[in-house]
Amino acid sequence: MTVKVRFFARFRELFGGDIITDVPEGASFMGMIKEIAGMNREGYDAIFDDTGAFREFVILMKNGKRIDCANAVQTPVADGDEIAVFPPVAGG
């Protein structure tokens, strides 16, 4: 199945923006992001801490809705999902 992962702001600079990826059925939200982030050491360190948990300030969205880090481990991704990963917002 195909999932679109979108990075914004500093994360976009590290990962290059939108990534379309094929993931196996049953893949978790967190596992998928870890796999993508693992391709870029600096990017991985920007998103995950030394224990492999999401850094406190990282914001996650699935199809435009925020999800908590605690749920990211169990949350499965589905075909066609749009996942967003970004740092704290600074609009206005």
Partner: peptide, 27 residues
Amino acid sequence: PIWKKELTKDGSRWVPGEHAHGSGRSK
């Protein structure tokens, strides 16, 4: 979800958000 980057004569810097409330806080 909007971000600002300041471009200076020496380079650039992302403006930190006032609300550093990421999804990771819930853990």
